[in-house]
Design a protein around this nucleic acid. Structure first.
Lengths: 374, 374
DNA sequence: GATGGTTGCTAAACCGGTTTGCTAAACCGG
DNA sequence: CCGGTTTAGCAAACCGGTTTAGCAACCATC
C-alpha cells in the first residue's frame, strides 16, 4: 500500500458549523434595512458615508458574504461558462488535447471574469447534466453527430458554441479542416512509399458509417477518415482487412490497439492515428515489440500536442490550433451572450497543416504491392 | 494566417430570443398553480396521474426547464465542488500534473453526481473569486503557504480540503511525502557519483526562505528542497552558486531555465527538477545543446506523469499518486459535506517513491571530488 | 410658512423555484 | 344523511439577495 495515514481527526462535532450570516442578520445587527446593507456594498453612494462604513463593519464581524446563488438569481446571469463533454471527465482529462483546449477557453473566460464549469453526463445523461448546469452559455466539445442527446441539449435553449461538430444553424460553431489535415497526413506516408497502413480512429468508431457526409458534415472521425480515404484513392491503395481500428485517444488506448493489431497478424509499415495521444501509445508499443521508429514503422499523429516534441522520436503529426480553438470558442460564445449583438450563427473553420518530425521515413523495403511486406 | 473564416452569420436579430418559460407560465397555461407544476416534477404522487401528465405535456411544449439557480437557492446546496487554483487556469492547465489531478477529482465527483467548477483569481483576487463561486466545498491545490489571501479563503467558511499545503486544523488536508521523495531523488544522483547538481524549483521560488518549517510545514517547494538538502548534507556536497533556479512547471519553463543556466556557464552533470514538466523541458534543452542524456547529463523529475514514459529517454522521477490524490481529496471533501459526519480535520499523507528509468547514469567522468564511487 | 428639491433610508416587490399548511371536494362506512 | 378520512390542488411563505418606488426629514427659496 502506497499510503500512510495519519488520521488526526479533530472531531469537534460539538461546535455547530455556524450558520452563515444572511443579509437580514447584518441588517438587524446594524439597525438598518436589508436594502441598506445591499447598498453598502453595491451602491455606497446612496448611503451616508458613515452609515455605509458602519454596515460594512458589522458585516465584517459577522463574517457576512452575500450568497452567490441568491445573487445570481436576481442578476439573471451566472457569469459562468460551461464546457460540455459527452465523455466522463475522468476520461476527457486523460487526453492532453482536452487540457490544452481548456487552457484556451480559460484564458479568455478568466480575462473576462467568467467562471468555468465542466459539465459531463449526470448518471449517464447529458440532458440531466445540462438541466443542473448554472451557466450562461456552453461550449460543446467532442459531441458526436448521432449522439442521442444532441437534440436535448439543443432544446435547453442555452447559448451554445459547437466545437468540432456538425454545425447547427442557430448556434456558433468552430472547427478545423480535418479532412485536409488527414489528407496531408496520409499523402505524406504514401509519398514515402508506404502501402500497408493501419488507421487508428478515435473512440466512437461506430461501425463504418464513416463517410457520412461532406467534408464539413459528420463527426471529426468521419471527416478525418474521409481525408485518409481521398489520399488512398489518389494512390490507388486499399486498406487491408481489419486495418481500421478503434483506439481511445489516450496513451494506453493507442498502445493496446497496436499490440492487438500485431497479434492479429497485421504488419503495417505505417500508422495513421487520429490522435497524438494514441500515436504516442503506438510509439510505446513499437518499442516494446522491438520495432524501430521510423525505420520499421512510420507513425503520423493528429493534433500536434506539446508532447509530440518530447516523444522518442519526435512525432510527425497534423497540427491544429487546439488552444486557439478554445480561445475562439470562448470568445464567440461571449460575443453571442453580450446583449444586442445579433451575432449568433457564426461559423468558423481553422486550418490544419502537416508537421513532419522524425517518426516517419520511407519503409525499409518498399512494399512491392503484391509480394509480402517486411 | 492560419485561419480561414467563413462567416455565415445568420443575423436573425428579428426573432426575440424567446424568453425561457418560467414555472408560472406553465401553471397558467395548464390552468393550475405553481405548486402543482412543481409537484408534477418532484412529487408526482401528490397529483392525480392525468393532471401530472397534462402539466408535463404543457411544460414540454413550452420548453420549460426549471431554472437551476432558483432550484439551488431553495435546495440550499449546489451539488458542485470547486477546484481552486491560485494561478491563472491557463497556466495551471499547461502542467499535465493539473489535468491528472483533475482527472482524479472528477472521477469521484462525477460518480456522486457533483459538478466541477474551476476557480481561479478574479481580477487578481482569489477572495473575489471565492465570493462568486457557487460551490458546496472547495479543493485547494497549489496554494502557497504565504499567499496573501489564504486567510480570506479561510474566512469564507466554505468547507475546504487543502492539497499539498500546510494544513489548517479545521480543514481536511492531503499531501504526499515530498521530503522523502526528494531525498530519494537526490540520493540517487549522488550515489551515481554526481557532484555538480542543478536544482529546478517550481514557480514561486520566492527568495530562499526555503527551509521554512519541518518536513510537513512550508510549501511543496520547501519540503522538496529540504529533501534535496538532506541528501546533499549526507554526501557532504554543496550546491554551487546559482545552482538553484526557478522554472515554471511547464515544458518551456524547464527548457528555458536550463538554457539560461548553461549560458551562465553552469555545467552540471545532474539535474534535480521539482516537476516532470520542467524535466521534460530540460531533456529538450539538452538535446538542443547536443548533450546526451544520461551520458552527459542525468535528470530526475518529480510527479511521475504518464508522459515520462514517452520521453527520450524515459525519465527517472519521483512517483506520487497524483490521480489518487485528486480522488482522495474529493472523497474527503464529500465526506465532510455529508451531514452528520463530524469528520472535518482529517489529514492524510500519501507516499512517494523513486522510479528509475533511463535518464540517469553515472557521470561520464566522475567528478573528482572524491574520486568516484560509481 | 407653503413650495420644491435633496438627502438618507425603508418597505415591498421581484428573481424562479420548493415546501408547508390548509381547504374543498370526493369517498367511506354506518 | 352524517361525521371522518383521503385525495387533489391552492395560497402563501420561504430561500437570500437586488431594486424600485416612495416616505420623512432637512434645507433653501420666495
Amino acid at each position: 500500500m502506497e499510503e500512510r495515514v495519519s488520521e488526526r481527526v479533530s472531531d469537534r462535532s460539538s461546535d455547530p458549523p455556524a450558520p452563515r450570516a444572511r443579509i437580514a442578520d447584518v441588517a438587524r445587527e446594524a439597525g438598518v434595512s436589508k436594502a441598506a446593507v445591499s447598498f453598502a456594498f453595491n451602491s455606497p453612494e446612496r448611503l451616508k458615508p458613515q452609515t455605509a462604513e458602519r454596515i460594512r463593519q458589522v458585516a465584517l464581524t459577522l463574517g457576512y458574504r452575500p450568497h452567490p446563488v441568491a445573487r445570481m438569481l436576481t442578476a439573471g446571469s451566472t457569469a459562468t461558462l460551461g464546457i460540455l463533454s459527452p465523455n466522463p471527465l475522468a476520461q476527457a482529462f486523460a487526453n492532453p488535447f482536452f487540457a490544452l483546449f481548456a487552457e484556451g477557453v480559460s484564458a479568455v473566460t478568466e480575462d473576462r471574469g467568467f467562471g468555468l464549469l465542466f459539465i459531463s453526463p449526470l448518471h449517464g445523461s447529458l440532458e440531466r447534466a445540462m438541466e443542473r448546469a448554472t451557466v450562461d452559455g456552453v461550449i460543446v466539445i467532442g459531441l458526436d453527430h448521432h449522439h442521442p442527446e444532441v437534440e436535448a441539449i439543443r432544446r435547453t435553449g442555452v447559448p451554445t458554441v459547437l466545437v468540432d461538430a456538425p454545425a447547427w444553424p442557430e448556434h456558433g460553431a468552430i472547427a478545423v479542416d480535418d479532412t485536409a489535415g488527414a489528407l496531408a497526413a496520409a499523402t505524406h506516408l504514401l509519398e514515402l512509399g508506404h502501402r500497408d497502413l493501419l488507421v487508428l480512429t478515435m473512440e466512437p468508431s461506430e461501425s463504418q458509417d464513416v463517410d457520412a457526409a461532406g467534408s464539413e458534415g459528420g463527426s471529426v472521425m468521419s471527416r478525418r477518415m474521409r481525408g485518409y480515404r481521398l489520399a488512398l484513392e489518389d494512390y490507388e491503395v486499399k486498406l487491408g482487412a481489419g486495418s481500421i481500428r478503434q483506439a481511445p485517444a489516450t496513451f494506453e488506448g493507442g498502445e493496446a490497439a497496436f499490440l492487438r493489431a500485431w497479434e492479429d497478424g497485421l504488419r503495417p509499415t505505417g500508422v495513421l492515428s487520429m490522435s497524438d495521444a494514441a500515436a504516442a501509445g503506438v510509439l510505446q508499443a513499437a518499442r516494446h515489440l522491438g520495432l524501430s521508429v521510423p525505420n520499421d514503422l512510420s507513425i503520423v499523429g493528429f493534433d500536434d500536442l506539446p508532447l509530440t516534441r518530447f516523444t522518442d522520436p519526435p512525432l510527425t503529426t497534423v497540427h491544429q490550433p487546439v488552444r486557439r480553438k478554445g480561445e475562439e470558442a470562448a470568445r464567440m460564445l461571449l460575443r453571442a451572450l453580450s446583449p444586442g449583438s445579433g451575432r449568433v450563427g457564426e461559423h468558423r473553420v481553422l486550418e490544419t497543416r502537416l508537421v513532419v518530425r522524425r517518426s516517419t521515413a520511407p519503409p525499409r523495403q518498399p512494399s512491392q504491392e503484391v509480394i509480402g511486406d517486411g
